[in-house]
Design a protein around this nucleic acid. Sequence first.
DNA 1: GGAGTGACTCGGT
DNA 2: CACCGAGCCACTC
Length: 120
Amino acid sequence: MPDTTGSPPLSPKMRIWQVVALIPHGKVCSYGQIADYAGLPRYARYVSTALKQAPQSLQLPWHRVINAQGKIAFPPHSAAFREQCSRLRNEGITVNQGRIALSECQWHPDLATLVLSLPF
DNA sequence: GGAGTGACTCGGT
DNA sequence: CACCGAGCCACTC
């Protein structure tokens, strides 16, 4: 029997996209954090996969996603690295040697925001 | 259906 | 700090 709730199950991938889309301008977030907020603990690794698979049409702020050490996850000097670097600077974020001041730029979403914005 | 692969993380050295 | 190893999970051959 089909579910009468009318709420289709959201795949992990789509949950991740939802969360990434919420990261505000000028803020950054780690892979592990995103997985956590998406209700998918220990999915940090899959976050990167999901981002790579995300269609351009979604226009996700992928550049606001960095690793838990506050550094850009791409190899330095790669095209993607420079791209992310300049995008972050465009938002007023200071990037030094691929490193970012998490203490100042890390995203701290409040529970209300998550509950109101996410369908789960 | 098993092995290999990542834009990861954490703890130990 | 930096490097290493183990744990992790969905995806792709």
